[in-house]
């Protein structure tokens, strides 16, 4: 933070001698929002019982930072033992996502979410064409053969996204110091939690942490385990 202030003061003194003082002041204000040093944002997510929430996505929604030129606009969600591996994948808008099938049987991958509607019928290996996710949001991914298979592609407007691990921690490193707004998504999050925006100031050094609680909906998934065969005679 000290370096940022020195930088701001020096810049201000220099601009006092320039005719475009008002524009310079605007730039100065921007510099106060986003510092030049990088800090870390750590979001710790728990459910209403205090248990860590894994596979939640946090995304910075403001300010929007430019996508680095070398950012890869690709992603992959594998299928192993009749399950989507992940099963949450984060990609930036306009990414191409492939759905390789590492099983030795066919899968029939689809989504009819508003974020992306597509269908990859009956394929194995890497033979399916990648799918372009050109709209921000969440696409729920399924297999039309194995109904219990469930995956999510989170398509962010920003590349500043992180997913919570088993301990409920989602970490965004190398953030310029400043004030940020972010949102949280989880497959079982309630609408009011999904709509909520959170504010945090990231300091130039060290980690800025925030604890959030999500009230998750009950985990009702389609059963994979075999059921009773019933009377045969």
């Amino acid at each position: 933070m000290t370096v940022t202030r020195v930088y701001q003061k020096t810049l201000s003194q220099a601009l006092n001698h320039l005719p475009l003082k008002s524009i310079a002041a605007l730039l100065l204000a921007s510099a106060s929002v986003l510092g030049t040093q990088a800090g870390e944002l750590e979001v710790v997510l728990t459910d209403s019982a205090g248990q860590p929430v894994a596979e939640a996505v946090i995304e910075i929604i403001a300010p929007q930072l430019p996508l680095p030129a070398d950012w890869s606009l690709t992603g992959a969600m594998d299928q192993v033992d009749k399950e989507f591996v992940g099963p949450v994948l984060m990609v930036v808008k306009n990414s191409q996502v492939s759905f390789p099938n590492s099983d030795d049987i066919h899968h029939h991958v689809y989504s009819y979410s508003d974020t992306k509607r597509f269908e990859l019928p009956l394929y194995t290996g890497d033979t399916a064409e990648p799918v372009l996710f050109d709209k921000a949001g969440v696409a729920v991914i399924g297999c039309n053969i194995h109904d219990w298979m469930l995956g999510y592609v989170y398509v962010g407007d920003s590349h500043l996204m992180a997913m919570s691990d088993a301990s409920g921690k989602a970490t965004l490193a190398s953030l310029p110091a400043g004030d940020y707004r972010f949102k949280v998504w989880h497959a079982r999050a309630r609408p009011n939690d999904l709509a909520q925006e959170h504010l945090i100031t990231v300091s130039a050094e060290g980690s800025s942490s925030i604890n959030l609680q999500l009230a998750l909906t009950p985990d009702r998934r389609i059963r994979r385990a075999p059921t009773a065969s019933g009377p045969q005679y």
């Binding site: 059963r223 994979r224 385990a225 075999p226 059921t227 009773a228």
Partner: peptide
């Protein structure tokens, strides 16, 4: 009336 309880990914118990 059946109660199906998954015990593992491919294992289940039914009480009926």
């Amino acid at each position: 009336l059946d109660w199906n309880i998954p015990l593992a990914r491919d294992t289940g118990l039914t009480l009926g």
